[in-house]
């Protein structure tokens, strides 16, 4: 007997993600899912951003890696709340992992909820593109050292991302990165997407990126935010 199903394969993940979206909406928390290759500079960008924000925004971070607590330790060293998720070989984070990490992050009810929650995904341009985590937006980071051909080779993530960071621009004089070509390809894949060229090393572009983050957080909070644990 043939039966019609028409059901989403990742339905279970998407149901949990939808619950997280609703929860973050009620609390007015802007959630950013950061995706990039290993070594693109995801954690380094966060360090630079948090230094620049200088506690002007309440931030919490969920760090995703296959192994080690190195990244969460770097963020905690800056006085920022961070939780490490180890996938032990898994190539992406999924929504149930975020649900558990969020429960852990908010265990201490005397600590006020964050205004901005950053999820740093496992270093990978492929699989994380398919898994919604309840975020407002995916942000893809591509370092200029990786090559300008990457947007066309990994089109899905550039299509899914709400904003793109081109990192390590201080290396532009030393690497053969076709900057205009990369921007053209990204725009072709995702017309109108916001692109932030920046360098965590020199600080170029960091201020503009931080301003944008604060605007997103303020916008989300003003819609419906309550910030309370209840």
């Amino acid at each position: 007997m043939r039966i019609e199903v028409k059901s989403d394969i990742l339905g279970e993940n998407n149901r949990t993600a939808a619950q997280m979206v609703e929860l973050f909406r009620k609390k007015g928390i802007f959630v950013l899912n950061i995706i990039g290759s290993p070594g693109a500079g995801k954690t380094t960008l966060l360090e630079k951003v948090f230094k620049h924000l200088d506690n002007s925004l309440r931030v919490a971070v969920i760090e995703g890696d296959l192994f080690t607590e190195k990244d969460a330790a770097r963020i905690k060293a800056m006085g920022i709340t961070a939780i490490q998720l180890n996938t032990q070989g898994g190539c992406h984070l999924d929504a149930p992992m975020i649900e558990r990490a969020w429960a852990e992050l908010t265990k201490d009810r005397s600590v006020p909820l964050p205004e901005l929650l950053i999820i740093e995904n496992v270093g990978n341009l492929v699989c994380p593109a398919e898994f919604n985590l309840g975020e407002d937006m995916k942000l893809v980071i591509l370092s200029v050292a990786e090559g300008a051909d990457k947007p066309l080779k990994y089109p899905l993530i550039f299509k899914e991302a709400g904003a793109v960071v081109l990192s390590k621009t201080d290396l532009l004089p030393y690497v053969d990165f076709d900057y205009d070509g990369a921007v053209g390809d990204i725009t072709m894949l995702h017309p109108g997407v916001q692109i932030f060229p920046l360098s965590a090393k020199t600080g170029e572009g960091i201020e503009e990126f931080c301003r944008w983050l604060k605007e997103r957080a303020a916008e989300k909070h003003s819609i419906d935010g309550s910030s309370s644990h209840e």
């Binding site: 007997m1 043939r2 059901s7 394969i9």
Partner: peptide
Amino acid sequence: EMQVDYLDID
């Protein structure tokens, strides 16, 4: 799309 479209079952 990433969908289960149909099943044949007995």
